[in-house]
């Protein structure tokens, strides 16, 4: 593996940090609207971190900043050891990103999607060829390699999207609602893979609306109106609020009529 991007990933001379993500007063305003309001928190390496919040709480804006896609208005963050303001291009090469909506090209075949993303990540041709065979085997998709991605069941598409986002061996992966619309069995299978990824030392940063999945996270935060209003281990939070499930805690903290969307 001597592809271009590795210069930025595995080099021990690069700034080391025990945190995969650390945000300090990170803020993003769009005009007069503050989407992300001075959030500060850290995610340790190898952690499965759940980033929860209602629709419109500011999660996606924050993730876009962490991925180096959107510059902050003020404050800053380090992701995989790089500063999101000054080193965003390195971040893009060191992280993986998968969302339910935008990951795969439906009108490319399964194999073409893998090749396409391998090319984007700057992998060599042999590397792509090797990875393609490996992934098709792992996903048991050999028979479907020349089928259009659109024809795959949703659960398989999501597993393929996840594999593709790991092609360049990122140290941290951002998953934005990776299991939306998927049945409980596929979701469980997906989470077993997430545990394997974290077990291999990678950091997993994940958003979800399924509160049973929130229970699987090592730590999680709850975002509300652009701020992080709670953070901790699921067990700690249950103890703190005297509630039995993350669903109850979420509704307790975010529910009711005080949501921003109910204020014209």
């Amino acid at each position: 593996m001597s592809s271009e991007h590795l210069r930025f990933t595995g080099d021990p001379a690069l700034p080391a940090s025990e945190f995969a993500v650390s945000a300090t007063d990170l803020t993003k305003r769009f005009g007069t609207f503050t989407a992300v309001d001075a959030i500060s928190f850290t995610v340790r390496k190898g952690e499965i971190f759940g980033f929860l919040g209602a629709n419109g709480a500011g999660k996606t804006t924050a993730i876009r900043m962490f991925c180096g896609l959107l510059p902050p208005t003020s404050g800053t963050a380090n992701v995989a050891g790089y500063n999101i303001r000054t080193q965003s291009r390195y971040i893009k090469q060191t992280i993986g990103y998968m969302s339910q909506k935008f990951s795969l090209y439906e009108d490319l075949t399964v194999a073409q999607n893998i090749e396409f993303y391998g090319g984007i990540y700057g992998l060599t041709r042999e590397h792509i060829a090797r990875k393609t065979e490996q992934l098709l085997e792992e996903l048991q998709l050999q028979d479907r390699r020349n089928k259009l991605t659109a024809s795959l069941p949703l659960g398989w598409k999501q597993r393929l999207a996840l594999s593709v986002s790991l092609l360049h061996d990122p140290s941290i992966i951002f998953l934005d609602e990776p299991t939306g619309g998927v049945d409980p069995i596929s979701r469980r299978n997906f989470w077993r893979i997430i545990y394997e990824i974290a077990g291999s030392g990678k950091t997993v940063f994940v958003t979800t609306h399924y509160m049973d999945e929130a229970e699987y996270c090592n730590r999680l935060s709850i975002m509300y109106r652009g701020r992080i209003i709670e953070i901790g281990h699921p067990g700690e939070l249950k103890e703190r609020y005297g509630l039995d499930s993350m669903q109850d805690i979420f509704i307790h903290l975010v529910g009711g009529d005080i949501r921003p969307e109910n204020t014209p």
């Binding site: 209602a54 629709n55 339910q100 619309g181 609306h209 979420f250 509704i251 529910g255 949501r259």
Partner: peptide
């Protein structure tokens, strides 16, 4: 058909 997919728990309720 799946009216609440992608909707947060409070809005789903």
């Amino acid at each position: 058909d799946e009216p609440t997919t992608g909707v947060d728990p409070v809005s789903r309720n």
